[in-house]
């Protein structure tokens, strides 16, 4: 379209984005509120952040959450990347539709069902619940998200480079690590980050599958929120929001830069040819 954006389009974008961002902005602002009453402004203060640093329970929960997120995101990335390769590359095999069904279903499955079913599995297996059961649960649903993200990267992939390597006698495993992986890497990294934040976020599945000694940060936040809104919780939330935003923005800038670099390299290569 050659015309500039119409007033209608601009208005809907502005209103839409204010709706998406205003609640988060207000939450961040009120985390710096001096007053304990969350909705009454009592002047600027960072005391809730200081208080946070002395709240051992909250810090413990944060540490558990980070470890769970790191391990489950890493395992989910490996499994999800494998699943994506299967979906895009393996052609037809027995049980393929069931396989893709199991990849897509957890994306929309209500969390209460996933949590309950995994808990009952762990009970049936007589498995003590705690740190590792939460990791297995998070890995299972996060790998499906990773698979979808990596799959979209694999679809627009020029296979001829891989075939050239194999024709030249490169074994498949080596081809994967030398050629395929570097090309799909942005998708794999995005998948890992998505898996990490999904795990960081999750309240429902963790509540079902956790055991004593493995209380995650969302569970801790949830139990305090039920008692009411406090500036301390606002402060925790602000820290999380800021960290995640920095991560996402940094990743997207890095991807963009890499893309620009690759285009430049390609142009240089073709220039040398001609």
């Amino acid at each position: 379209m050659t015309r500039g954006p119409s007033w209608f389009n601009v208005t809907s974008i502005v209103l839409g984005f204010s709706f998406l961002y205003l609640p988060i902005v207000l939450l961040v602002i009120y985390s710096f509120n001096e007053s304990r009453l969350v909705t009454v402004w009592g002047g600027f203060s960072t005391k809730w952040y200081v208080e946070l640093l002395q709240n051992d329970q909250l810090l413990d929960a944060a540490w558990v959450t980070l470890r769970v997120a790191f391990v489950s995101a890493s395992v989910a990335t490996v499994l999800g990347t494998m699943a994506a390769l299967v979906l895009v590359r393996s052609g037809r095999f027995m049980g393929r539709s069931m396989f893709s069904g199991m990849i897509f279903a957890p994306l929309v499955m209500p969390e209460v069902i996933l949590g309950l079913s995994l808990l009952l599995l762990f009970v049936a297996m007589d498995q003590a619940r705690g740190f590792w059961t939460v990791i297995i649960a998070h890995t299972t649903f996060a790998m499906c998200y990773v698979a979808v993200v990596v799959q979209s990267r694999l679809v627009g992939f020029d296979k001829s480079v891989e075939e050239a390597a194999e024709d030249l006698g490169c074994p498949p495993i080596k081809t994967f690590f030398l050629i395929t992986l570097p090309i799909i890497l942005p998708g794999v990294i995005a998948g890992w980050m998505l898996a990490f934040t999904l795990s960081l976020d999750d309240l429902v599945i963790a509540s079902f599958t956790t055991g004593p000694g493995a209380t995650t940060l969302p569970m801790k936040i949830y139990s305090q929120v039920r008692l009411g809104v406090t500036p301390e919780i606002n402060a925790v939330c602000t820290i999380l929001v800021v960290l995640v935003s920095i991560g996402v923005i940094a990743a997207s800038i890095a991807t963009k830069r890499q893309q620009v670099q690759r285009e430049r390299d390609e142009r240089a290569a073709f220039g040398a040819d001609g």
Binding site: L26, T39, P218, I221, V244
Partner: peptide
């Protein structure tokens, strides 16, 4: 596009919690 995706990355629980202070 990134501005639409960003809230998706920030915690679900936090975004729901933010509304309590607004709607009370």
């Amino acid at each position: 596009l990134m501005l639409v995706i960003l809230p998706f990355w920030t915690s679900f629980l936090i975004r729901v919690y933010a509304w309590i202070g607004i709607l009370k």
